[in-house]
Design a binder for these strands. Structure first.
Lengths: 183, 183
DNA sequence: ATATTACTGAATACTGAGTTCGATAACTCG
DNA sequence: CGAGTTATCGAACTCAGTATTCAGTAATAT
């Protein structure tokens, strides 16, 4: 890909993330984005069909970067497993979040946008599915499987939001312990 | 209040609810609302400053109708307690939801709007607070109070959403049992 | 060195929000 | 019932933001 294209794309993402951490998605205009990114109007639309697509593509890049490669022996970036390989992938995810790669924290922190959260939840869902064996023993016998499954994902998302919402003070291990404790 | 005002207000609410159950809040235009409600443009703005206020006021009416009066011996509508007074207020709420008063179900069902959910959660929060003693014994000792509290509210909201999302097939008692089981 | 491709920026059409106002109909209260 | 008030109507208007177009210019690849 052309270097200019990459640069512009990155610049737009950066400007967008910066704005997202300050105001609600709905209140961000394309004008603000292109002004902050300091690019021409036509350029923006050459990259992204609409503002919604911008968010979508950004989320995909962000989450793909963190979550992907969990599947079968991927080559490229298995980075989530490469580090000191803690027993739990979830714990590892928490450690990544704490480092605030790509300002994901800023995005998750504020009320901001259900859209972003939706993508996040989707990715987490896949992650939990892979880890389902960990929680098998905790499931109360009377509740249906999909209810239980949904509960785990929701609880993880809300746990992370709670953690971030009060400044990421606790260690990933502590948060992971909380998470396991209430399940 | 003038009968005309009441009628118009109701008509707007109905049109709005109808649209909300079909499309996302952000995608609903004032034009659609007034067309569906079959009222003049100026009339809409005579009632509601903006679309956001419409949502806000609608939620207030809806939830006030169900949740309010929990406080000290209110006079007017203590209806949530008047019926056959089940041991749990939450169970009672579930029974009310099942009846689908004012089409609340339609609103909670679809992905729709985090705004509506936000108001719902707020109201539930107050409800849970009043019932906190019920869950006291279940709290794992290591987790902080506010984390635990947040978890109960979130779980209740998500339980209701799960219930509605698959057609409100189970009885309120069953749902309440599920809810208690996973906590 | 040249052909290709991306960026610029200004002009433009379009959509939806919210306002204004005079005319008309519906309501309230004495 | 009648006078005065208030709600509604509908069309025209301003304003802001979206999305497109296009000719000119700069960066890039090979």
């Amino acid at each position: 890909m052309d270097r200019r294209q990459r640069r512009t794309r990155e610049t737009i993402f950066k400007a967008f993330i910066g704005l997202l951490s300050k105001k609600h998605y709905n209140q961000i205009t394309v004008n603000e984005i292109i002004e902050r990114a300091d690019i021409g109007r036509a350029t923006f639309y050459a990259h992204f069909e609409t503002k919604d697509f911008l968010l979508k593509e950004m989320c995909e890049e962000l989450f793909c970067h963190i979550f992907d490669s969990i599947d079968e022996g991927g080559e490229k970036h298995r980075h989530i497993f490469e580090c000191q390989a803690p027993s739990s992938v979830i714990l590892h995810l928490l450690q990544h979040l704490q480092k605030n790669d790509n300002n994901i924290l800023d995005l998750l922190a504020c009320e901001n946008n259900e859209l972003f959260l939706g993508y996040f939840k989707e990715s987490l869902s896949a992650l939990i599915y892979k880890q389902s064996s960990v929680f098998e023993g905790k499931k109360p016998s009377i509740v249906p499987d999909d209810y239980w499954y949904n509960h785990i994902v929701t609880t993880l998302v809300e746990t992370i939001r709670w953690w971030i919402g009060r400044g990421v003070k606790e260690s990933p291990q502590t948060i992971y312990d909380y998470f396991l404790a209430i399940l």
